[in-house]
């Protein structure tokens, strides 16, 4: 599964687990409007750390917080690569 597919599937799984309604996922979707709260988001990042073995939010190089889903995927793409 590609990084993108992994991320999208984790978003969907966490939303389902947390009983949250996910907005239609597109690269331009702002993370604050995707339907996940901070807690769900924290679970997404931890799940991705398990699935992809990276946590870009804790890397020393990371400075910019992603604003859109596209930024978020790019951040993981960059860290995995």
């Amino acid at each position: 599964m590609s990084v993108r597919d992994t991320i999208l599937s984790v978003f969907k799984q966490v939303a389902a687990d947390q009983g949250r309604t996910l907005a239609p996922l597109s690269d331009g979707l702002r993370l604050t409007e995707c339907g996940l709260d901070s807690l769900s988001f924290a679970i997404v990042v931890s799940s991705l750390e398990d699935a992809l073995n990276v946590d870009p939010f804790n890397s020393s190089e990371w400075v910019d917080f992603p604003v859109t889903l596209g930024d978020f995927i790019k951040l993981y793409d960059h860290t995995v690569a």
Partner: peptide, 10 residues
């Protein structure tokens, strides 16, 4: 706790 960069911990 598991450390989380978003909420400090989950």
């Amino acid at each position: 706790a598991r450390r989380s960069p978003i909420t400090g911990a989950i």
